[in-house]
Amino acid sequence: MADEVLVEHHILEYPGGYTRTVGPVIGRYLTGLRDGRLIAVRLGDGRVMIPPAEYDPVTGEDAGASDADFLEVGPGGTVTTWTWISEPRPKHPLDHPFAFALIQPDGADTAIVHVVDAGTENAMHTGMRVVPKWRDERVGDTLDIEAWVPEGTGGASAAKPATSTEPVTTMSSPVKLEYDIGAGVAATRFLLGLAQRRILGQRTGPGGDVYVPPRGSDPKTGTPTVDEVEVGPRGVVTTFCVVNLPFSPLAPEVPYVCAQILLDGADIALFGLVADMPAADVRQGLRVEAVWADEVGPTLESIKWYRPTGEPDAEYDSYKEYL
């Protein structure tokens, strides 16, 4: 067992943020925010809902099918519940202590989630009156309201005119999450092996199959693999494709060859690039060997790619079960 497993920082972020198309009803709400107005929808039973939905949440029936179903509410509102955040997180909308709250705008029967910038927790209470503080530059987003503030404290501002009159049809939704991912015990053994230019697999038991990279388990039985076995660095191309687009940052050039390679001593093929030869000459049965990076370490990039060994091709029968 490795005493220390490898850990790597992982950022999950779609570059540029998600682009959301918002449809006619949410679009009308966001357009209202852009214009400095709170837009609600009247449901079939007469209740006024904000943010407006395309449907009645209770019955599922359509809502907001006609212009007449929409109405302006607020701008003042009442806090129906709240929580004081004394230490804001980086993703929170305000960088000083504030309240998250449900705020029911005047004329609405439901409440929206937003923030109240009240200065101190003592200023907060359920039932308190608040008004929106609009940003000067508004884009059609929930954050066009910078915060709600207690009524009569002078913090509110009348919305300045919007800079656009086009309906809001999309919004950008940046999502960035950060992780520290552990490799696990078996993968750590494998990666530490690469740092020594060794390819380590694990055997499922006496006379059993050798898995590389090892996954810690025999996937056929769900039982642990334990015996460590060095495999490769030579092997055979069992099958491959020629890639004509620059998908892989690891590939030396385009076109490149993405192959399944059965390393000598292993019972399972792994994916790798084949290079140092014309892509058109790569074939099933080709004998190859791992090419180590100039600087190796406990990373998958320690093997740059595989190159031909010059040995005679392997017989199809010798690898046909590994396809």
């Binding site: 998600y18 959301r20 918002v22 949410i26 709400y29 966001l30 943010p51 929580t83 955040i85 997180r89 993703k91 929170h92 909308p93 998250f100 929206i112 989630v113 937003h114 923030v115 987003d141 929930t142 954050l143 919004m171 939704s173």
Partner: peptide
């Protein structure tokens, strides 16, 4: 994701 997500109210809040 349209009207609440942008405020990033964490699950504890």
């Amino acid at each position: 994701p349209y009207t609440v997500g942008p405020l990033w109210p964490d699950t504890i809040s």
